[in-house]
Design a protein around this nucleic acid. Sequence first.
DNA 1: ATATAAAAACAGACTGGACGGTTTGTTTTT
DNA 2: AAAAACAAACCGTCCAGTCTGTTTTTATAT
Lengths: 196, 196
Amino acid sequence: MENALRSERSRNAVIQAALTIIGRDGPGRLTLDAIARESGLSKGGLTHQFRTKGAVLQALLEYQIEYFAKFSRDYLQEIDPAQPEPRLVSQIATLREIAVTRQQHSVAFAILGALTDAPDLLSIIIERDTEAIEQIKAEAADPDLALLRWAAARGLALTTLFRICPLSREDRERLFDLLLDDQYWQHRADPPKPGV
Amino acid sequence: MENALRSERSRNAVIQAALTIIGRDGPGRLTLDAIARESGLSKGGLTHQFRTKGAVLQALLEYQIEYFAKFSRDYLQEIDPAQPEPRLVSQIATLREIAVTRQQHSVAFAILGALTDAPDLLSIIIERDTEAIEQIKAEAADPDLALLRWAAARGLALTTLFRICPLSREDRERLFDLLLDDQYWQHRADPPKPGV
DNA sequence: ATATAAAAACAGACTGGACGGTTTGTTTTT
DNA sequence: AAAAACAAACCGTCCAGTCTGTTTTTATAT
């Protein structure tokens, strides 16, 4: 087998193994030895592909981010062209997906836990979001209202992710539906200020 | 000195020491030995007061929660009586305080990090919030809109806490101001539905 | 009050194990 | 022949929790 392919296979195996362990045993049991065992690789092979545990976590995070970035892109693609704020809506829809997808919870924990030694692991998230925010602002009739809708979706997603959401499942779903509903916000948007 | 007082002093010393360490060295350096050293207690004394590290974390979390609960109570006390949704507003104000207070960030990390082994440490947060949510719903003309305001504040607070907020400081402050501003939401609330 | 036994608070050395990372050697690809 | 990929034993450190004592407080009996 080609080396490049071999490496890629191994790296994928590692990421899948990490996800399996986190889901099955919790993020506390995500050790290099466990990953090696679960992936079928030896520890040597593992550390050949990822020099440190932080590197594994980073790959894991990038994998997750790409997964949801793709979700967002696809959603944007198939959105009603008449939709006035497509970027905002696709971001909110993605956040709903994050909040709903069951396995994500412990992955979030795992990464948060690792943040202790790798504080700027999350900077990639900021980069992505900053971009998204720019676009949301640009397309919005009332940018602040759009940001607030985004923030609310984030709040629902993060509280759910960390299992500290005091709202019922129905409440959350209804709120997400509202956040996605243009009609609901249309007449709530600030009318453009008359020129002074 | 009385035993009860002796214990209380020691426990307080431990919590303060923990906060000092987290703020100065980061949550990764929060070990039992470090806490003992910083607090002036011996390891034996420390483990006499807190049987496990989880117990320390729990006390730390309770301390923080009580701190902000008091902030919220005080805010509620001094609020304009004409304020239509005082509970919501005081909750939002508290969340703004959390987002702004500098030291909180790493404390949040420390506790999240420990969540690995003590998954239901956070249930106390849910309990408090559930209560708050009930009151917010009860006093609101448009409960869903109130929940969304709350969720947005949470989103801003949590993203800031975990340093993944893509918004500028000014943006955040302006958004918090908006969330607190009744005028802004008044005409946005759903008019009470006409009886069928 | 005073002596004394018990309990609580505290001191600090020690242990056991987990875990990240290294090292040395082998197989496979280039 | 060289480099990449992999195997697996090994090491050093860190750290939560324990264990054995010592000091201080409290309860009880005289």
